[in-house]
Nucleic acid binder design. Structure first.
Length: 971
RNA sequence: GCGCAAGUGGCGGAACUGGCAGACGCGCCAGGUUUAGGUCCUGGUGCCUUCGGGUGUGCGGGUUCGAGUCCCGCCUUGCGCACCA
């Protein structure tokens, strides 16, 4: 233990930190005033002349294991940014709540045999303690929790808004686009008044229809629908999952269980109606390109055409519809391929044997087409997607024995079944154009099918490959239309026009995005605010009867199955509570109290996190999810679009800064945008995007160690040894181990908790260390011991203000000397810029330099310099800054103190060092006046003896960049 | 396979529009304070060197008076997508 009584140790840091956290809380310094709503404080809002700022973190999920040092990285960064902006005079809203419904909490509860509410609340308490100890400047009044009925009442309310809305693709929008959600009541009115024709034109009006018939019509238009669909059934979790929750390997995102395709009736949200806007509106937000690309890929929009190929053998056959992005290549379609599951396959297979002239390669060795197709389908069905991928790109298929007619050339084309065609995309059938498609080329060469080039490849193109680029069309004419000579874009346009004219096809857009499967057969989630009547018709629970509370069932354990039992059936825990399921209710529709059956599914985990940032704005509002004035103030569109937005793009509004990992790119970020847009369309919000600026942070990776068997050993027990050449080696219990870097956690046995850091160094040092590691967007390795560097910085800062021996103030009311003033003001200018751009690592470097410069003064530290340094350090290390600020005589917290401003006069130098190069190599340095002329500098440089010595053969030219550089080029 | 990032000392990382490579920190070395040091302070620290200097930002070319930075071709690592018609 140190004998120095007033040293800034971890122990002292801890006392200071807890004391200031208590003070901040008592004084409510982080409470941001709202313009309206239950906390309306317009005067408080008006005091902030610097405007307003909304800073957001990823909604944390309280796990049973507590935090590790990787978790707070983003929270610290947003806190530093928020604190900096408060010191610029802005009204800053920064808070944190808890996303606490969902699978992990439920699984943890099941494992420990406790009720999920109990374990979840305990986990929240642990996490809240760990985060509070970090000194985050959050508005404590706004810490919402998704599991509270006051919160999920609004989650259910939003569900009903979406349920009671339909998408009118023709309705104009305020932003100039077309298509928006409208209340279902307006659709009813259109049907009733006759302005919109009813789907079944049997002469009856809306009022003539039975309530079942009306419900069927409306339900088919709602943005939430119950549909019979192919879903992802996960027996290991006992629930169905959304596409976004299934990994590329066909397993569950949570728990890594196998997922099977099943036909089931389920709730889906019609996110596909928003596919275009979700893709297009990415232009207006400032997000990393990587994340935008991931969303665009997921939405997977492609433009092309649907084309129908008649089936020649049968006039009554509907024909085979394909989707293609290259209708311009239609003349080169020499065969077709259908997915093995395609419903039309059977209709193409002729009875009896192979048609005349069938190539042996097409038959798969079978005696008849029927046999060949059956065998191929059986083989395809037996293989999982994973196995298909593992077999690489080899193309296989068999001839169906049937032919279709190329609609532009009239030529018969053989139809194959091939598993490189996927049932889930487009129409499940393709026209194959080997000359312009690599996959079709591979298939055509393997099965000896004809290849017709319809785009002229450039001369240097390999004749043995497909050509997918642009070029003039060739071989593309019939009696009525010719594409020859047109480029790809023009050819597409002309052929689509011709196809549409002939009724053979039409321009079309397809998407990879599928509707969002929204029901889960679990317990720990928001109940659906839906009641089914005796006809099975779903009714929304009236708003004044919300929330539909999650009942406290005795057995909340979900029915899970053997993870590989594909044939099992989902069984929601809520269905077991028959008292809850059956309910007497009056829907206020004039039909009085009737008996209903509740929906026993619960919402997915994403529901609560889809809109939490809106509730932060007005968490106590009992009348609305957010007062419109509050939403407009915090999130409304700004006058200027974001940097880099294409011309003509306006600002969509939204959160000013959202920091989080990239792992939510296609889940949370897509779902939240969808809900936000629906609420925008329905007039509840002024912003059309939830997150104007998104910043993807890197991860913290910690060293993990494996022994000779490849097993992980406890990282905290590993000893490091430094060899003579400086390279480290590692041992565990005396045996050598290997170091690698990976995610922090139990599985790699490399857990480091923030609690460890608080005990060893204190929260301020921990914050400083995390921010100093490197750029926020990069992943970087953790090294607990290296945090001493940050601790030394704070100790030096402390010593610059407080005498370690006596505890007296070392700051003196003296002027700052000229040299120090220069350093000080340069630091201010640089740090301001760094903070504004989230460049915390470089800000720390600059502050360290200033701190070291003050240390080197030796004697008393001039007050103006010490105060400016403390204020600048405050966003990063707020507790020690507050303590020093107070010891320097200030009675109020520095949370709202003005950030130091640089004096521009002190940023310019009188003299600078000029580098003199010969042939690009530095040979001399000259101290010259900053305003020296080019000519004077050239003369000075050439006069230098060191330069003269190198110019024996004369000078060819001299490049002068006054005042910093001269480059002499010798002859 | 396609696409996007990124490769700088023993380590994490600095370097504005091409203009002093290695800021700041860890580690390491030396010295000081200390009975002691997993303390603190001071100085040093890319590599090679015959101490003049040479060389150096993944590799190979190029543009330029001048390249970590721009262009072309490769290599490696990470991430995303992966028969998307």
């Amino acid at each position: 233990m140190s004998e120095t009584p007033h040293r800034y140790t971890a122990e002292l840091a801890g006392r200071i930190e807890v004391a200031w956290q208590d003070r901040w809380e008592e004084q409510g310094v982080f409470r941001a005033p709202n313009p309206a709503g239950p906390w309306a404080d317009p005067e408080g809002v008006a005091e902030h002349e610097g405007g307003h700022l909304l800073v957001l973190d990823m909604f944390p999920y309280p796990s049973g294991a507590g935090l590790h040092v990787g978790h707070p990285l983003g929270y610290i960064a947003t806190d530093v940014y928020a604190r900096f902006n408060r010191m610029l005079g802005k009204n800053v809203l920064h808070c944190l709540g808890y996303d606490a419904f969902g699978l992990p909490a439920e699984q943890y509860a099941v494992q420990t045999g406790q009720h999920p509410r109990k374990t979840t609340e305990e986990n929240i308490a642990i996490m809240a303690r760990q985060l509070r100890r970090l000194g985050l400047g959050h508005d404590d009044r706004r810490a919402v929790r998704t599991i509270d009925p006051d919160y999920y009442r609004w989650t259910q309310w939003i569900f009903l808004q979406i349920f009671n809305a339909w998408y009118d693709a023709d309705a104009p929008r305020e932003d100039g686009g077309t298509g928006r959600a409208r209340p279902i009541a307006e659709l009813v009115e259109e049907y009733r008044s006759g302005t919109r024709p009813l789907p079944a034109e049997d002469g009856r009006g809306w009022d003539d229809l039975s309530h079942v018939e009306r419900a069927e019509i409306l339900d088919s238009r709602r943005l939430v629908q119950s549909v019979e669909a192919t879903v992802n059934w996960c027996p290991g979790l006992g629930t169905v999952l959304a596409n976004e929750e299934v990994t590329n390997e066909g397993r569950s995102d949570r728990g890594n269980f196998p997922v099977f395709k099943r036909r089931l009736r389920q709730w889906v949200m019609r996110i596909t109606e928003y596919a275009d806007r979700l893709a297009d509106d990415l232009d207006g937000v400032q997000w990393p390109e990587k994340v935008k690309t991931m969303q665009r890929n997921w939405i997977g929009r492609s433009q092309g055409a649907h084309v129908t190929f008649p089936v020649g053998t049968d006039a009554a056959h509907p024909g085979i519809e394909v989707f293609t992005t290259r209708p311009d290549t239609l003349f080169g379609a020499t065969f077709m391929a259908l997915a093995p599951e395609h419903p039309l396959v059977d209709s193409l297979v002729p009875e009896g044997g192979w048609p005349e002239g069938t190539d042996d390669a097409w038959t798969g060795g079978a005696a008849t087409p029927a046999e060949a197709v059956a065998a191929y389908r059986a083989q395809a069905a037996a293989r999982t997607d994973l196995e298909r991928q593992a077999e690489g790109k080899a193309k296989t298929g068999v001839f169906t024995g049937g032919f279709a007619l190329n609609p532009v050339s009239g030529a018969p084309v053989p139809v194959f079944v091939a598993d490189y065609v996927l049932m889930g995309y487009g129409t499940g059938a393709i026209m194959a154009v080997p000359a312009q498609d690599e996959r079709d080329w591979d298939f055509a060469t393997a099965y000896r099918l004809p290849i017709i080039r319809t785009v002229q490849p450039p001369e240097d193109h390999d004749e043995d490959t497909a050509y997918t680029g642009d070029g003039p069309a060739v071989n593309s004419a019939n009696d009525e239309v010719s594409l020859d000579g047109l480029d790809v874009a023009d050819a597409k346009e002309r052929i689509v026009a011709w196809l549409e004219d002939k009724g053979l096809g039409r321009g079309a857009v397809t998407y990879k995005l599928r509707d969002w499967l929204f029901a889960r057969q679990r317990y720990w989630g928001e109940p659906f605010p839906v009641l089914f009547d005796e006809d099975g018709i779903a009714h929304g629970v009236p708003e004044d009867q919300l929330p539909v509370e999650l009942p406290d069932v005795p057995d909340y354990t979900p029915k899970v199955y053997d993870p590989d039992d594909a044939d099992s059936e989902p069984e929601p825990p809520l269905a077991r509570d028959t008292d809850w399921v059956t309910v007497e209710a009056d829907l206020g529709d004039g039909r009085g109290t009737r008996t209903f059956r509740r929906d026993t599914n619960v919402m997915p985990q994403w529901a609560g996190s889809c809109w939490y940032y809106l509730r932060y704005l007005d968490p106590a509002n009992g009348q609305a999810l957010v007062d419109p004035e509050n939403e407009a103030y915090w999130m409304g569109p700004r006058p200027a679009p974001v940097a880099g937005a294409p011309a003509g793009t306006g600002d969509p509004g939204g959160v000013d800064l959202y920091v989080g990992g990239v792992e939510h790119a296609v889940l949370h970020l897509l779902y939240a945008r969808f809900w936000h847009k629906v609420l925008f369309d329905l007039g509840h919000l002024s912003s059309s995007e939830p997150f104007r600026t998104y910043f993807a942070q890197g991860y913290i990776q910690a060293p993990a160690f494996t022994d000779a068997r490849g097993q992980y050993v406890e990282a905290s027990e590993v000893e490091e040894h430094v060899g003579d050449d400086g390279t480290p080696s590692f041992t565990h219990a005396g045996a050598p181990v290997n170091r690698e870097f990976g995610k922090i956690g139990k599985s790699l046995k490399n857990m480091v908790s923030p609690d460890d850091m608080y005990a060893m160094y204190g929260a301020d040092t921990f914050r400083l260390y995390e921010m100093g590691l490197g750029p926020l967007e990069q992943s970087k390795p953790w090294d607990t011991r290296a945090a001493v560097g940050s601790q030394r910085f704070l100790q030096r800062l402390w010593r610059n203000v407080v005498d370690e021996e006596t505890g007296d103030l070392r700051v003196a009311d003296v002027d700052v000397d000229a040299e120090t003033a220069k350093v000080l003001h340069r630091t201010i200018a640089a740090v301001r810029e760094d903070y504004a751009g989230l460049g915390f690592n470089t800000a720390i470097a600059r502050l360290t330099e200033l701190n070291n410069a003050l240390t080197k003064l030796g004697g008393d530290v001039p007050r103006p310099a010490a105060e400016a340094l403390v204020l600048m350090v405050a966003p990063l290390a707020p507790h020690v800054a507050e303590e020093l600020w107070r010891r320097m005589g200030h009675e109020t917290s520095l949370v709202h103190a003005a950030f130091p401003e640089a004096d521009p006069a002190l940023l310019v130098d009188d003299t600078v060092t000029c580098v003199v190069q010969v042939g690009g190599k530095v040979r001399d340095r000259l101290e010259v006046p900053a305003d020296i002329t080019e000519d004077a500098l050239r003369e000075l440089a050439l006069a230098s003896p060191r330069i003269q010595a190198l110019l024996e053969n004369g000078v060819r030219t001299v490049v002068v960049r006054a005042p910093r550089l001269v480059n002499v080029v010798p002859a």
